[in-house]
Amino acid sequence: MSGMSKIVKTISATILPFITIYGLYIIAHGHLTPGGGFQGGAIVASGFAMIVVAFGSIWTMEKIKEKHLSIIESLGAIGFIGLAFFGLLFGAKMFFANFLVKQDVIPFFNQIGQGLSNINTAGLLPLMNLAVGLKVIAGLFAIVLVMAYATSKIKEGTAK
């Protein structure tokens, strides 16, 4: 796929920041409003998939390789499982223990919820949302990008 017309490209490039900001908002407010890491990551990955459709997979593969997406996804997975293992060291000494809430030593995310606007709550949940969000963004975008690139190679007849 060598990209669509100029109108589609312009509209896609204009609307991509709004989709990305909306998805990141859903990830960041996952512990306050409906949504979370998986939902916001799926929205951001949908925006990037729109870029793949509009600009073509070859152009997109020149900008970002699937190796980098694999690195981002592995970082998300390591962050998620690392936060889970940190629960073994602090707090309740359990796997998946929420050790940041109900303490005063570390002043991050340690308050109890006071309405829908206080983002500094809920302990580990925002960090885990961020990790899972990175993982879902990179994973779903990597699936779409790799499949589109391989099938465009098949269309050109250059696949081995």
């Binding site: 512990h31 979370g36 929420n98 709550t121 809920a122 949940l125």
Partner: peptide
Amino acid sequence: QKETGADNGVTAVVFD
């Protein structure tokens, strides 16, 4: 809300 501090119960169940 008392145990995890999160207002969204679904995320609290899923992640905690």
